[in-house]
Simulated assay, not measured.
Amino acid sequence: MADAFYLPDPANPDRFVSTELTRGPWSPDAQHAGPPSALLGHVIERCEPRPGFQVGRVAVEILGPVPLEPLTVQTRMVRSGRSVELLEATLSSERGPVMQAKAWRLKVAEPALDLPSEFLPTGTRPLPTTTEPSGFPSEQKVGFHTGIEYRFTTGSFDESGPAVCWIRLKYPIVAGTVPSPLERALAAADSGNGVSAVLDWSKYLFINTDLTVTLHRQPVGEWVCLDAVTHPQPHGIGLAESALFDETGPIGRSTQTLLLAPR
């Protein structure tokens, strides 16, 4: 089995070979949206990087199923500025664009701002005490669920409703690199609708059409926690939202628009 979600193409720096670790739960031929979202974060951070800046928000649009095929990325600076920049990245297969992301990159205050402590984000989520992985409801032997670790502190894949789940990458997003905090956050955040599922996996689809992650600070460490809840609606459109944490406290939030449908 591969030791990374994507392998860089030595002949083309904009091309990445998808491995089996990217496979999602819905189809053996389609990727989970977590790895390609993280891949978009990977290339966005490398697009005209500037010291003293960090990404504050990434909005990913899922244009269609992402096949288990080589993918090509294109990045560009949409809007440059002294303190705020807007970047765009597009992920394409041979059939055309499959995902697109826009990211705001902001200048970090130096020195740090003297803000009233009562308005700063606080709170933690308990770390998992179990060392046993949480079983993922997938018929695929190898996929995204085998490339990461899930640890629930409340809820589980066998229970419906809100859940708190810690997620850690077992492999790098791109071979030969160390996952950045942004990559870890994007890879984990796309599981919000799965860990807080309210519908029977065997009877319904609840596929997200997008992923928006806003980080007010960069996560520290390998684990990212999702305090997730899904809001379904009978007309077939739902919302999944997650409060995001690392071991020291809150780092941001994520949302996903969901298509709900019978299988």
Rank of each mutant, 00 (worst) to 15 (best):
L215S: 00
P97K: 01
E94F: 12
G249Q: 10
E20Y: 12
L106C: 07
R184Q: 05
R253Q: 15
R82I: 05
I237A: 07
P162N: 01
L86R: 11
Y150I: 09
R57F: 06
C165M: 05
V108R: 14
R76D: 05
L244C: 04
T257C: 10
V195K: 09
L87E: 04
C165I: 01
E139H: 13
L63K: 00
E88T: 06
D200S: 04
P13M: 14
R57L: 05
S93A: 09
S254Y: 11
A228E: 01
E247C: 13
R95Y: 03
L106E: 11
L215R: 02
P116R: 05
D158K: 15
N208Q: 09
G135P: 13
R76Y: 02
V43E: 09
R46V: 06
V84M: 12
I167R: 01
L244M: 12
E247N: 14
A33Q: 11
R168W: 03
A4D: 06
Q54T: 12
L71S: 03
P70M: 04
A243S: 12
P28W: 11
G64E: 07
A103R: 10
S134W: 02
W166R: 08
S242N: 13
T19M: 07
L113E: 15
R46S: 12
L244T: 04
V229I: 14
